[in-house]
Design a protein around this nucleic acid. Structure first.
Lengths: 215, 215
DNA sequence: TAGATTGTTAATCGATTAACAATC
DNA sequence: TAGATTGTTAATCGATTAACAATC
């Protein structure tokens, strides 16, 4: 099988979830001026085994070199291409509470290609207010903005109770994926993937780990 | 084996990661006045199979009832006990950038028992500034605050480059677990668990999902 | 009682690790 | 060349699902 075919095959979720870490590490090494990295040193830096690293990287359209390892520049480019982050991705953010405002103000996402082009809120008390250089817009503008700016991703940082309703509105407005920062579980059609990032869940998981390791 | 023994056994990570979701759902149902919930309806609400739900809940010290399901009140209590979130957990936050300030201002965590008792930053420009009712403290105060307030969890929201050094300081100050919001991979001794919540990684994972589902 | 739903065992599926020939 | 490191196959390990007896 040639590499063209291979990269079209579905990559296991577990592997996709590690790819952003490899990408971050490849970027870092390249910035540091490191030109080559072995599967073993990637593994050590990321808390994995070299075997896992080689298995994972076999899913991208990029080859290592015997005795030298992987070119950091090549690895970075191939990972970005595989993930689809080698070009800008347009996002909107719904929910201008503390968390939403922080994400809108955070510049790191834009630097990595995730461009936020609008901040929305359902509360009339918040609509019209400024968040950095954004002016918070009403939900009624959603459909038009998504269409005009070709928005791909909707970021949800609304209260738990509102989450599903807002997700439904985002889907109707034709965003193609959702980043869910709420505690709610979102139901979406199969064509609209959801990735969850729940700080509260992580804290609870950590509470368990802390307790179970102490004894 | 009695249930006492069982709950002392190590619970698989995959199960621990789902427990916060069951807890959120049990809380929600209880608040709505629902008294009983079946494994099937939990599964439907959370996007799982009823088989997974029953397997998972067999790890907590709590029994369902044939023909009725699980008592929402009992389930909530047992999950909170198992996770170790049936009492307050003291946290500090390091890094008073946009994200850090947002988390400090967010009231939801405190309501769920995660009490932030201090906000720290290494930048003299930020130290002394107010974040909500907190006054940002210098890193030099870390050890004393952790000891005096019995801080269990350190939340990291510093820049990538500073992450490992700050993690090391937190470990020296004797926090017992780290919530890592940075893009860095943290190396810690086995006794100090780390849970990662990386918004950028989630966005990248989502970018891949969006692209692979469209075709 | 009849039947809905649990708890658990066994089967399947997927992810990780080990091992090693190929290669630069 | 010799040996370090890849890419890949096979083995192991763990997680999910299916199935069903027990039970209220």
């Amino acid at each position: 099988m040639n590499t063209e075919d291979m990269t079209r095959l579905k990559i296991p979720v577990a592997v996709v979830r590690r790819m952003p870490k490899y990408l971050t590490q490849a970027q870092y090494l390249r910035q540091e001026g490191v030109q080559w990295v072995s599967s073993l040193s990637l593994a050590e830096a990321l808390g994995l085994t070299s075997s896992t690293v080689r298995q994972d990287l076999s899913h991208i359209d990029f080859q290592g070199v015997s005795k030298r390892g992987y070119s950091t520049v090549g690895l970075e480019a191939a990972l970005a291409r595989t993930l689809g982050v080698d070009h800008d991705i347009t996002c909107i953010l719904v929910g201008a509470g503390n968390l939403g405002r922080a994400l809108a103000l955070h510049e790191g996402f834009g630097r990595q290609g995730f461009k936020i082009v609008g901040v929305f809120d359902s509360s009339p008390a918040v609509v019209g207010k400024k968040v950095g250089h954004f002016i918070v817009r009403p939900m009624a503008d959603l459909v038009a903005v998504v269409a005009q700016q070709k928005v791909e991703i909707g970021i949800l940082s609304v209260p738990h109770e509102a989450a599903q309703a807002v997700a439904d509105q985002l889907i109707l407005s034709r965003v193609r994926g959702l980043l869910n920062l709420t505690t709610a579980h979102l139901r979406t059609p199969a064509a609209v993937p959801v990735v969850d990032t729940r700080v509260l869940s992580s804290l609870r998981e950590l509470a368990y780990s802390v307790r179970s390791r102490q004894v």
